[in-house]
Amino acid sequence: MYSWLIYAVAFSQIVVLYWLAAPASFRLVYHAMLNKNREWVDANPAFRQRYATPKYSIWICYVTGFGWLGALIYVFFFSGSDSGMTASLSVPILPLMLIQFGYMGIEYYRVYKKIPLPVKRSTSLERRALKDFLNPSWVYICYVFFCLVAGMYISGLVRGVIEKNLFIARMVGMSIAVAIGTFSMLYALRRKKQPVDDALGPLARKFEVFGTVAVLYICVFVGLFRTLQDFFSVYLFTDLAFFFSMSVLIQAVSLFCLMHASTRKLLAEIP
C-alpha cells in the first residue's frame, strides 16, 4: 500500500517538475531576458527569430524526464533494492536544479548579453533589504543553528564519537544546502523587477523571500535531525519519510505556482 504511494509521488515528480514546471520556468526566464529592452526586441524581429524560444532546453527536460521514468521503473520493479526508494524521491531533483542553473547561464550569454541596454530606464525607489520583508533575526538564528550543528560535528570528530567519512558527508551536505539557501535568498532580494512581478504583484517577491528563508529553516531542521540521529541514535523519522514529504511539498508549490491565474496568463502571452 505504502509502496504504491511512494511510486506515485516518485513518478508524479517527473511529470510535475520535468514536464510541467521546468519548461514553464524556462519560458518565463526567456521572457524575463527579453524584457531587458522590450522596445529594441520588438523593433528587431530578426533577433527574435534567431534567438527563439528555448526549444532545445525544453526538449532536454522532456527527454531527461523519460530517462528518469525508465530509471524509476527499473529501481522499483526490477532491482529489488530498498535504498532505491529513498533515492528515487531525492536524486531526480538535483539534476533538474543543475539543468535550471545551466539554462539560466546559457540564456544569459545567448540572449541577455546580446540585447543592448535601453536608453530610457526606470525603476522603483522602493528599498529591497531583508529587513523590509521580515525581521533579519529569523535569518541570523538560522546561521547560529548551522554553527551549532557544525560545532557539534567538529567536537564529535575530535572526541572520536563519529567517523571522519560521516563528518565529511554531513559537512559537505550542510554546506551545499546553506550555500543554495543563502544564494537563493540574496537572488530573491537583489534580482531586478521581472514580468512575473508585474503579473503576481508585490506579494510575489515577499513570497519568494519567505520561501527561501523557509528553505534555510528546513536545512536547520535536517541538521538537528541528523545530529540527534548520529549522536544520540534518536530517529524522529526515516530518510524515506523526509524525502517523501519534501517531494510532495515541492510538487505542491510548483503546481500552485503553475496553476495560478496570473502565471497562466503570463505564459499564454509568451509565444
Binding site: 530606464r121 526606470s122 525603476t123 528599498r127 529591497r128 533589504a129 537583489r190 531586478k192
Partner: peptide, 14 residues
C-alpha cells in the same frame, strides 16, 4: 522614507 541602497539602484538601472 527608506531609499534603496546604492548597489540596488545602480543594478536596477544598469
Amino acid at each position: 522614507t527608506a531609499l534603496p541602497s546604492i548597489r540596488q539602484l545602480a543594478d536596477d538601472l544598469d
